[in-house]
Design a protein around this nucleic acid. Structure first.
Lengths: 379, 379
DNA sequence: TGTTGATGTTCAAACGTTTGAATGGTATAT
DNA sequence: ATATACCATTCAAACGTTTGAACATCAACA
């Protein structure tokens, strides 16, 4: 039998092995082959011998069903778009993992695109997801995420959306995010518990959603402990799209606060990158972490764990957030027929304190001494 | 005109706005609308007024062409599959960026999938790329990449492949990678130039492609300088799929080498994660980098740049590697018709030394003293 | 008067798959 | 004998798009 030969010829002409190639090689109709290979209900009625024959031949020819043809006919793509604002942000990776895991289990495919912090790309990719007929979209808004009315276009084609990292319930979009207020409070309480009283705070950029609630949490925790935060020790990162700018910001502010002469024994940085910048700044001035000053981050990215000292930080349940976002989206998809729209829900997940070695009790006598000569080196 | 109304009704029934919705709303045939919206050559012959009318209506209804139908008909998907062995490896991100950039310019779409170091997923995703009719595939083999015969299946469907991070030219696959030998030599020469003589080396896992050439480069550089590498100061990371295991390995080996009592003033780590592990290990023993010991990494990932001290490392031109891989693939695609296969090429890109603060000249009197009590703490 | 050549639009087939309905069987029950 | 049920397979239409060929209209030229 030269079935394989036929298949080869056809492949050369057409580029891909199709159902009809397999059918021809088996001397059967396209229908039968389709029914068997796609394991349709009808395939129960196909003789086992025939099924075997078809499967073997498909394998031999290297047949792979064409998703485009299938989607067209089935009117379902089994695809969810995942639009990350910046995939290189360490924040994204675990979220995406969580999403992938959940979607995979539900036999969905996740189509990931990366806007690289560019508004233009964001729009283009959103359009692309629509064109590829994603059945739903998850947006990961790790960094600044400006309003885009393309989200409206998405709803015009009634494609449900879930957003991670930002509260858009006001726009009737289900949102999944960490409880920033609780996280901020957790961080502040940790420093207070260690005995710190003079604490510097580096707030996130004004445009960034997380900034305000974290700062609120920090203030509330301070307030509850009857502590004032010295306004001379609060700073705010500038609005910048580049997520790495946090490092430079932390570095600069650390030097600023040392130069100001205002004493402090601990720093609450907006995120881990900022914290690492602070560590660098202090270190360049000859100070040690945590000996001379404790530093806390937020997010729990890889770099925080593997730097020395390890950065004490607030862990975001990123994986879980991804999982949850995917689950909610799948549920919405399930209830697609029922016209009463399942209302947008807000999921705020609890953060966790991860204690590493960048935090320690303040050394009593140095508490008001941190303006000692910054050039002094300890050896 | 209640065109919009019709569109809405149809959308509710069918889920998506199609060409025929637009056509009906414009009182034109599907063909005309298609010709105009896809800017086919024939559209020159369509009256400008008509074109406007069509475009406006398409916009109003929120029409987006169905990629599946289009691909099916055009027999081209304009899609390149990008299969990363582990997207969470910091190595991948810049490579993917480079790829995306190049493909975008060529109006191609990059379909990214992430095998998460799991062989099973690798196979599944490769199949998926075939089913989605990717016209070519770029494999990013950052970490251990076992042979898979699915690559053969890919060629069976004559989909060209380019691999990044590994030399598979022996299998007739165009390969793009950093010149590991040169990189290893560069690192060694840097330490030698600084005056180091007793240098520990942590080699990569045996199964990993980069390990051997880097080690060769290191030895050749040492040899050229007439220096012997003490076998008691060479270590090898175990075979592990988890890329993060490099950190633990570095940590452990640092302690081992201190415990062994064999003096050393510098460490060449296999990669940045390993280097960071070494820094941690030395630090836990009370030693300072670079004061007591210099540490070099390889790769130049984010964590190396933002940790303190910054890790001196060998930079891989990852972005460029991505760009190059994409370019080669596109070229192959262009010459698809011509049956003489453009033979597989090997591209070895030059690495660069990035000097940060983890390396410094050895302090003469401590050169043979590093076996001083490892428990001593400097403060 | 017929030919050529634009211009503006439509026809109809095709891409590869799925699937409800239909086909022709054979065996069992009425 | 006819009806019923099941088995194994095929028909044919449809999904949304593209595109070579065709059509109709009008103008200008031989």
């Amino acid at each position: 039998m030269n079935g394989a030969g036929i298949g080869n010829m056809t492949r050369l002409e057409r580029g891909h092995v199709t159902l009809s190639d397999v059918a021809r090689a088996c001397h059967l109709s396209v229908s039968t082959v389709s029914i068997v290979l796609s394991e349709a209900p009808l395939s129960r009625h196909v003789a086992e011998a025939t099924r075997q024959r078809i499967r073997v031949m498909a394998e031999r020819l290297g047949y792979h069903p064409d998703v485009h043809a299938r989607s067209l006919r089935r009117r379902r793509t089994q695809t969810i778009g995942v639009l990350a604002f910046d995939m290189s942000d360490p924040f994204c990776i675990p979220v995406v993992h969580g999403i992938e895991e959940t979607l995979q289990a539900a036999k969905y495919f996740s189509l990931q695109v990366n806007a690289q912090t560019q508004r233009m790309l964001f729009d283009r990719y959103l359009r692309m997801l629509l064109e590829r007929r994603a059945e739903g979209v998850i947006v990961i808004a790790s960094w600044v995420f400006e309003e885009t009315n393309l989200l409206a276009d998405i709803e015009k084609n009634n494609v449900p959306v879930v957003i991670v990292g930002r509260d858009l319930t006001a726009r009737r979009i289900t949102s999944v995010l960490v409880d920033n207020h609780a996280g901020g409070a957790l961080a502040m309480r940790h420093l207070l518990d260690l005995g710190h009283r003079r604490i510097a705070v580096i707030r996130g950029p004004e445009e960034m959603f997380d900034s305000e609630p974290r700062w609120q949490g920090i203030r509330d925790a301070a307030c509850a402990a009857g502590i004032q935060i010295d306004p001379r020790l609060t700073f705010q990162l500038p609005n910048q799209v580049n997520p790495r700018s946090g490092f430079e910001g932390g570095l600069r502010f650390a030097k600023d606060m040392l130069a100001s002469g205002v004493p402090f024994t601990g720093v609450l940085a907006f995120d881990d990158l900022t914290a690492l910048g602070v560590v660098r700044g202090l270190s360049e001035a000859g100070l040690h972490v945590p000996g001379d000053c404790s530093v806390l981050g937020f997010d729990d990215i890889l770099s925080a764990a593997i730097s020395t000292p390890g950065i004490t930080t607030i862990h975001q349940p990123l994986h879980e957030m991804g999982t949850l976002a995917a689950q909610r989206l799948l549920e919405t998809l399930d209830h697609k027929g029922e016209s009463r729209a399942p209302k947008a829900r807000l999921h705020r997940l609890g953060p966790e304190l991860v204690v590493r070695t960048s935090s320690a009790p303040p050394i009593p006598e140095t508490e008001f001494k941190s303006q000692r000569s910054p050039v002094r080196v300890d050896k």
